[in-house]
Amino acid sequence: MEPDRKDPREALEELTTSFTKPKKTRLWKSVFRVKHDRRDTRSRALAVVSNVFLHLHPARINRDAVRYSYTWGMGGISFYLFLVLLFTGALLMFYYHPTKIQAYRDILYLEHDVPFGRLLRNMHRWAGHLMVITVWLHMLRVLLTGSYKKPREFNWMVGVGLLAFTLLLSFTGYLLPDDQLGFWAVTVGTNMARATPLVGHEGPLGPQMGMTALNDLRFALLGGSIVDSNALLRAYIWHCIGIPVMAAVLMSVHFWRVRKDGGISGPAPVKLEREVP
């Protein structure tokens, strides 16, 4: 007859092995499905393709494609900065109210009372500026290496969209401190909207289309005819939800297409003129 109790020594051994060899436990195996052995190339490949955060990468790439001199790393750095901005931005949202009464005070509060508040705000602002620069450099690199050429034309187009979103993200954030700098920058910026052809009340053919200061494009952007509380709220929502979501969608397409269009473009062997028709 089977004993209905375990042998204490056996039980103790089971317990100790689960501590001395945690990788043998059911818990560990359920989290990490693949055994990782750094000497085994198959295992290294699995480490990449079986990880949700890493599986954007292929398991193996062209040996020269990892060279910094070719890629400058600007696309990846832009994406990293986007993540930094999401993180610092979400933390800032805890302290910020997009209202005329509180917005400016919240910034003062962040700067003087919130632990590391000033650092947080500085990092968010400078990361935003830095992202504009890295996106431009990324575009420059892609252009210099001719990486927009067939079959990657469409992905270049998506990239131009991302460039526009990066600038708009930075611009909508400019108003949020509700200080003189942001107020006048956004006033200057949105004044251009009223000169939009057809849909601005001071633009070519705008008046003929029935546009006034109370129904044109600028009014739609500001939620009013002046930069005031509605404009602050609209800028906040575009900045924190609208544009980041659209940018994230385009980014998914952008990264997906990098893989689907055959990975990064080079460094490819040179071609000669006489070899092309």
Partner: peptide, 28 residues
């Protein structure tokens, strides 16, 4: 960068007092 240079913060927005020069963010 963030430890060395503070993000700018001017006076509260005031439609009655025009900044001169009133400049757009540098990329615009």
């Amino acid at each position: 960068w963030s430890l060395c240079i503070n993000a700018p913060l001017e006076d509260p927005a005031n439609p009655g007092q025009t900044m001169n020069p009133a400049k757009a963010p540098w990329y615009f």
